[in-house]
Design a protein around this nucleic acid. Sequence first.
DNA 1: CCTTGCCTTGACGCCGACGTCAAGGACTAC
DNA 2: GTAGTCCTTGACGTCGGCGTCAAGGCAAGG
Lengths: 146, 146
Amino acid sequence: MRIGMRIGELAARAGTTTRTLRYYESRGLLPARRTDNGYRAYDEADLKLLRQIRTLQDFGFDLEETRPFVDCLRAGHPEGDSCPASLAVYRRKLDELDALIGELQSVRAKVGEQLTRAERARDELAAEATVPGGPEPACEWGGRTR
Amino acid sequence: MRIGMRIGELAARAGTTTRTLRYYESRGLLPARRTDNGYRAYDEADLKLLRQIRTLQDFGFDLEETRPFVDCLRAGHPEGDSCPASLAVYRRKLDELDALIGELQSVRAKVGEQLTRAERARDELAAEATVPGGPEPACEWGGRTR
DNA sequence: CCTTGCCTTGACGCCGACGTCAAGGACTAC
DNA sequence: GTAGTCCTTGACGTCGGCGTCAAGGCAAGG
């Protein structure tokens, strides 16, 4: 059974980089013990913390939002979301997601409308151009006309 | 009838800042003529270009994506989206939006699941704690463990 | 003349989550 | 001893779209 590991192994096991771990430590999110020679030392519990952070990051949580989950785990709770503060973050994130999705759907609808309108305008111009005796186009299309 | 305006007025009329206009110019998106004293000079056509840019920016297009629309207008076309390149940007943006919305909805579902699961776990712990002779909680709530 | 309010260029700051490089120490293998 | 691979800290770069000075020029009103 493994007793401890250094930063490279932890990073590899969590699918991230040593730079990321040092960054988390600099943010006070994942402090490390040190061996005699000054190397960072981690254990399985740290891996669990790290995986919790990474999972939430993958969901789009920013680092500060993962802190309650990490604190919760370190307090001895079985899961990072076993604490009210974590649940509050979940709820806030759900609200944010709903708001964002709504905005994006609104934008999507508007852009879709614009595309439809622009295509129709293009087709109408093309039709006029082919109608005998039709009006000349307002401007040239991508170079020369006709 | 207005013949021209300086940067402050154009910015105000488009609801943006002089800094933004200089930035657009530095990106080659909205070059300005100059008066004798070196001041930037704009006209109504520039306002139209600027409004096109701002509208797309509000939709979440990045600056480079607005370039085809601006070029289209400057080429003399009635609308910024009267050119194939603009339509291509619309379509690409629609695809991006659909992909992003899909991802966000997926994340939303997962976070929602997590919240539900965590709340259920919490309620079960609470129930066990009140049941006479029930098992002790895995850890203390909001205090220290061990 | 002086103030006020525009304008000019230049340059650094910001945000988040790291990437990347530099210089050097530690440990293992041969 | 020396090559190789890990580790350390420190510091600057990235990306987009500007914000925010700083130092100074130009025009108009009192």
